[in-house]
Structure formats: C-alpha cells, structure tokens
Design a protein around this nucleic acid. Structure first.
Lengths: 171, 171
DNA sequence: CATCGTTATATCGGGTCGATATAGCGATGT
DNA sequence: ACATCGCTATATCGACCCGATATAACGATG
C-alpha cells in the first residue's frame, strides 16, 4: 500500500522507494520486503516496470493500481490496531475521503485508550511483583501512548476546523 | 529470549506467557509465534514440558536454558537498533551485568539520536514537497524519539546513582 | 587507475502475523 | 436441567517480513 501511495506521486526505482519509506518512519524496512513486494504488485498489474538510467528499473503505478490503492485506503474496516498500517494510511491521508478521516483518527484513539487502560491495570496488578526496570518500561509505554493520543487530538481538531493546518498547534 | 526470561520467574503455560508478553508491551504478539517458539525451545532443550491442570502444558526452563538466556542477554553486540529486542533486554535488565547496562542504554541512545538527526534532515529536505499529514507524521516521529531519549537519560542517571530507583525521577 | 563507499537489484532461510480450527470451562438465563 | 456465550487454551497454515548475503556498476579521492 505504501509503495502504491508513493508511486502515485510519480515514478520511482526500488532503492528510492525504500529511502522514502524510511523517511516515513519505517526505519527498518528491508530490501527483502521491497523487491518481492514490487514483483507481487507487478504480477497483479498494479504497477509497471520500464528500464531507467543505468541498471535502474523505473516503477510506475497503473490505473488499476490507483483504483486498488483507493479501495484499500477507503476501506471502512481499515486496520487501526496495527501501528504501521495506521501510519501508512495517515501518510496518504490527502487521498482519503475527508468524511472518513476523523472517524479513522477516532478509532485509532479508541485503540490507544484501551491499551492505556489495560496497561494501567496490569501495572497495578503486578506493581509489587515486577522489578523497577520492567515497571519503568511499562510506565514509559503508557506515557508514549498518552502522547500519541494528544497528537491524535491535535490532528482531529485541525481536521474539524476544515482549514486544517496541523503543525499550527505545534509545540 | 522473552519466553526464557519469563520462565526464569517460574513455570507457566503458553497462554499465560502470551499475556505476560502483552503486559511487557508486545500488544500484538501472536499464538502463531508463541507456540512454534515453545516447540523450538523444547527441541533445543532450553525448556521442558509437563502436563498441567486440564489441558494445559506447563513449561519450565532448564539449566541449559538459563545459561543460553544469560549468554544472549550479556552478548556485547546485543541488538540495540531493533525496538523489540531492546525492550526485551530492558525487561530482564536485573539479570544483566551492571557494568554493561549503562553501555547498553548509551548505545540505544546513539541509535535514536541518529534517527532524530536523519529524520530532521529529511524533514528539511522535503518540507515543501510533502503534504501536512506526512509532515505531522514525521514531526511526531521526532518528538517520540526525543521522549525516548529523555527516558533513557532518566534510566542512565538512576543507574549511575547505584541505588537506582527509576520512577523516583518520574514526572 | 586502484580502491572505497554508495547506489542498486536480487534471493534465501528462518521466523512472525492473522486467520482459523478445535474444545473444555464457567457463568448467566430460562 | 441444559442451552448458549464468552473466555481459556493449544495448534496449524499460508502469506509475508526481516537480516544476511551476493553481485555489480558508479563516483570520488588520492
């Protein structure tokens, strides 16, 4: 999905795609994921290949590819539990129907809130049994999730005020 | 490694192990990882199985298992780029040689600092080309990483003052 | 023009994930 | 008494991802 999204901006070769994925925060994406994914997308006729300069291969998205991308992006039941899947969809939010954007963000927020609640419960439950390192780890997990929720609130707020310039409220 | 660490605390069955892994922040750990892992550990003689109550199977760590756990925990070249691997080691920090703990935390900090730097670079490089959502995503990534660094600083500080009570400096 | 670091494509084995199957268990309702 | 529901519990499968590795051309430095 991320590859299709990036190729919507314009044709690219594999190595460049990988770099752009790293830029989006997928630090550890591997060539062992990228190249097989490109072959799968080609087989499915969602992308096309043509020789670029040197030994490069230029990948271009097809009409079917755009259609498929839109379909999985707009899918109402779109994954919101999976952090990576969430981040990919957010990176291509501009292509998402504005009406479903807020719903999508709210659903992510619900998931995080649930995790925070259950993490707090297990912290209380195990407070006396686990060592200070484990406890610090769990507490940091809660704080991170809370920061994520605050960020989602920013995004939702700027999405509601239509003009929407997230970053205007930036710290 | 996480399974061996948890079994050091006492015998457990598979389902319970999975729950404890979730408690440690591995929200999405799957049974398709847990049960095959238990079989591999059994084959390697790092754990032993005995029938528990009902249809449960109780897993126990062996002497070889403890030895192996200690070895991969203390391994100087221990993975610090991989967030999951880092978190597992931190969860079992009490078993790690105190001299190597600070080094381990510092190395993780270096990795995060490098990521922050490269993320800032790619933010500056792409600031005018990418849309506001992508930008917010990248900015949030940087803020999260910075929060992680601050947390590591807390852990390092409390580790240096021997008595070490992380959470004493808690916000 | 040798050498080194970067760009670039590709594959492989071992492992993870999400879905699914199966079934016993305890509680709640009628 | 017993149906049914949700939770506990073990297990497997296909599709896929990751890290290591192979290969080679390219550009810059000396």
């Amino acid at each position: 999905m991320a590859i299709l999204g990036l190729l919507r901006e314009g044709p690219m070769h594999g190595y460049e795609l990988k770099q752009r994925l790293v830029d989006l925060g997928f630090w550890r994406i591997s060539f062992g994921s990228v190249y097989p994914a490109l072959r799968r997308l080609e087989r499915a006729r969602f992308i096309e290949v043509s020789p670029g300069s040197g030994r490069r291969k230029e990948y271009r998205i097809t009409a079917e590819g755009k259609e498929h991308f839109q379909q999985i992006l707009e899918d109402e039941a779109s994954e919101v539990e999976n952090t990576s899947a969430f981040r990919v969809r957010l990176a291509f939010f501009k292509y998402m129907n504005p009406e479903t954007r807020i719903d999508f963000l709210e659903r992510r927020k619900t998931v995080l809130r649930e995790r925070i609640a259950s993490a707090r419960t297990s912290l209380r439950r195990t407070a006396d049994r686990v060592d200070r390192y484990t406890q610090s780890l769990m507490e940091h997990g809660v704080r991170s999730a809370e920061a994520d929720v605050a960020w989602l609130d920013e995004l939702i707020a700027s999405e509601r005020t239509q003009d929407g310039a997230p970053g205007a409220e930036k710290i």
